[in-house]
């Protein structure tokens, strides 16, 4: 089976709203496909179509070799889904949630209990096994949700924004879990608003915006296209901004952007830093602040589309600045 997931020209309308205009993507078995996009890009709609929850208005998709609309039942036997909104029953305990899924999948009570215990252990939830899920923290709830999607040992797993809203530590935990899954040969489709997350986890990335694929490739290819990091310079004198922009633009071989007092440019190779410092100094430009930080999704979008994301709040993970 060459592709575990394959979608061609997916289109989805809700009345007048065009949620997906044209989405094509594919993931080879045993790999992680990252679907990166801002709020409203169509990530959830894409996931829901692939997980057989909703039918596309046009286009075609296969999961595990089965058509998602005509062979939905077979697809459901192969997949696990962790949706954007937690699919755990808050009134049930951690153990009961997993037992429920096991029983629905046809396991005997004994097998379902054993599988639940195994997953609770693996996701460090054993202590909370007998507590109602409504008492869980955000991170625990996500782990339980993920555990629930793994009860049936799916070959293909859909994770819709699994780390949105989590603190950095819980996010790191989830990353480890996802890495562990691919070691077991599971194919993962993961949606995210974080460039860094896609970079960390995905073998291939598809960037979508307003229901269309606007870029795709390996994380490295994508980063070299848009710059993995952003160099920011704040000259002391506002008059120096143009000159500073020219210098950093030349060195980074990319188009600089001036916003207020700040000059920024995407850089693919951070080795340019010493040269930047030297050239600015040679030109007699006094620098108030110079920093290098990871690109936010917004900047990736700007580089790819020329417009900012509608949700310019962007990517909190990329906000930690690296002192130059």
């Amino acid at each position: 089976m060459p592709h575990a997931i394959r979608a061609d020209g997916l289109e989805k309308r809700f009345g007048e709203t065009v949620a997906l205009a044209d989405v094509s993507l594919s993931a080879e078995a045993g790999t992680v496909l990252g679907v990166l996009g801002p709020n409203g890009a169509g990530k959830t709609t894409t996931t829901r179509i692939l997980a057989t929850l909703t039918a596309p208005t046009a286009g075609h998709a296969e999961v595990g070799g089965f058509d998602v609309t005509t062979h939905a039942h077979q697809v459901r036997r192969l997949i696990g889904l962790t949706g954007q909104y937690a699919g755990v029953d808050e009134m049930l305990t951690g153990a009961e949630n997993l037992l429920l899924i096991g029983r629905l999948l046809g396991m005997s009570r004994k097998d379902a209990k054993a599988r639940a215990a195994e997953l609770l252990e693996r996701f460090r939830l054993s202590d909370a096994a007998e507590r109602a899920a409504k008492t869980f923290s955000g991170g625990m709830r996500r782990r339980l949700d993920l555990a629930a999607s793994l009860v049936g040992r799916p070959q293909i797993l859909f994770l819709d924004e699994p780390t949105t809203g989590l603190d950095p530590r819980s996010r790191g935990d989830l990353w480890e879990i996802v890495r562990g899954l691919t070691d077991d040969g599971v194919t993962v489709l993961l949606t995210t608003q974080y460039l860094e997350e896609a970079d960390q986890l995905a073998d291939d990335i598809v960037v979508i915006d307003r229901g269309r694929v606007i870029a795709s490739g390996t994380p490295d290819a994508l980063k070299s296209q848009v710059g993995g990091q952003v160099l920011e310079v704040t000259p002391v004198r506002a008059d120096d901004r143009e000159a500073a922009a020219k210098i950093v633009g030349e060195l980074a071989e990319a188009a600089p952007e001036i916003r207020d007092a700040l000059v920024s440019v995407p850089v693919a190779d951070t080795g340019v830093m010493p040269a930047v410092v030297r050239r600015l100094d040679d030109a007699g430009i006094a620098v108030a602040e110079l920093s290098l930080r990871r690109s936010s999704l917004d900047e990736v979008f700007f580089a790819l589309t020329g417009h900012h994301t509608d949700d310019a709040a962007g990517d909190p993970a990329a906000r930690e600045e690296v002192p130059a």
């Binding site: 829901r48 997980a51 057989t52 929850l53 039942h73 459901r76 036997r77 997949i79 696990g80 889904l81 949706g83 954007q84 909104y85 937690a86 699919g87 755990v88 029953d89 808050e90 899924i101 629905l104 999948l105 629930a148 999607s149 049936g152």
Partner: peptide, 18 residues
């Protein structure tokens, strides 16, 4: 439906009516 529990059920290979 609001919480996503229904989506989880509908992604499982179970009877639609269950």
């Amino acid at each position: 439906v609001g919480k996503g529990v229904f989506d989880r059920f509908r992604s499982l290979p179970i009877a639609r009516s269950a």
